[in-house]
Design a protein around this nucleic acid. Structure first.
Lengths: 203, 203
DNA sequence: GTCTATAGCGGGATAGAC
DNA sequence: GTCTATCCCGCTATAGAC
């Protein structure tokens, strides 16, 4: 194994466990068993579970930042960015049994270690602000009725996506997520057909 | 103490702990310490933690049923019922640091004991169906544009409420919940002013 | 119905050999 | 960087006295 591989393997598995079960519902033992090392070895990479949790969130933030940069490099229009955003949400659900880390972390928020709370709040803020910026540009281009502020639109979209991923998984009805996404697009855009969503069949 | 009091005290505190921290983040010890009994005494009332969890959900279901019945007795109109529904969501947030049990349980779903999963799914279904029925009646009365099915409206409302409660708490910005609720009402009703929401000041 | 006492496990974490 | 061995703690749960 090249250096960093174990660390990455730990992070990858921890991410999967976080998104399937929640932060307080998985242990170092779960990780050790799955990737074939001992608990003590995990402590070498992440001294405490809080460190692992913070590293996870920081990786989410970096990943989101890189994703946003790619959109910029492609000179994506606000409509294209929003379409990509919605499609990314569909990807999350396709990942059998998992929901977005955002949702898990905010539901479990009070039970998280202090540094994770701080890191998570920054993550949440960044996500929110990205949406606000894109929605603001979209509004200038007439994508939405201009009687709403981008902040309110962003809050609605973020909330609905998070809640419907959770409900769709728990109820075993992925089509409920589909319904919410379509409903949102229809109710927000003046010309909903500018944003195309994946088919319900997928999942 | 009259019989049943300890049981109720346990349930009340467990509900509070569930809604502040999540099911897997509180223990019998937390309850025992707070209400001044011993861990073993809790096992007398609820043999296992799973039993406590199921009892909690069953109580949520009974409570929701009683609430709906009261609406019926008052001959509430669909608009009044929906207004009451939204106002109930505001109450949840006012309860400092707590979010709705629905949200916690669906986020933690995969990490819940089997019987809790089953009970929760029935709870979710009942809530959904109540909304669908009320929205259906409202549609007949022309409260909404009739190009949407009540099922889709219900899914959107439920998701957005759940997600925004979580986000509002984690970000320490209750006004974000306010914004989402207002945005929803505005986007769903043909005459939004028929449903009045509490003021942002409250929280 | 509540208590004391304790079993038994699994959690996070550390020391020190290799 | 990974291992073995071990610590200490808190958890759920049970037995049995009162």
């Amino acid at each position: 194994m090249s250096p960093g591989d174990t660390r990455t393997a730990i992070l990858d598995l921890a991410e999967e466990l976080l998104r399937t079960r929640s932060f307080n519902s998985f242990s170092y033992q779960d990780i050790a068993a799955e990737i074939g090392i001992r608990k003590a070895s995990i402590h070498y990479h992440f001294p405490g579970k809080e460190d692992l949790g913070v590293a996870l969130i920081e990786r989410f933030r970096l990943r989101a930042g890189a994703w946003a940069s790619r959109m910029v490099e492609r000179n994506a229009t606000p409509a294209e960015k929003l379409e990509a955003y919605f499609q990314a949400q569909f990807e999350i659900l396709r990942d059998e049994g998992k929901i977005c880390a955002q949702g898990i972390l905010s539901a479990e928020f009070n039970a998280l270690p202090e540094r994770m709370k701080e890191s998570y709040m920054e993550f949440l803020e960044e996500q929110q602000q990205w949406l606000v910026r894109v929605l603001g540009k979209g509004q200038e281009l007439g994508l939405f009725a201009d009687d709403r502020t981008p902040e309110e639109l962003a809050a609605l979209i973020q909330s609905a996506m998070q809640g419907s991923l959770q409900i769709a998984r728990a109820s075993g009805r992925p089509e409920r997520f589909q319904a919410v996404a379509e409903e949102l697009v229809r109710r927000i855009f003046t010309a909903p057909e500018t944003v195309s969503l994946p088919d319900a069949a997928a999942s």
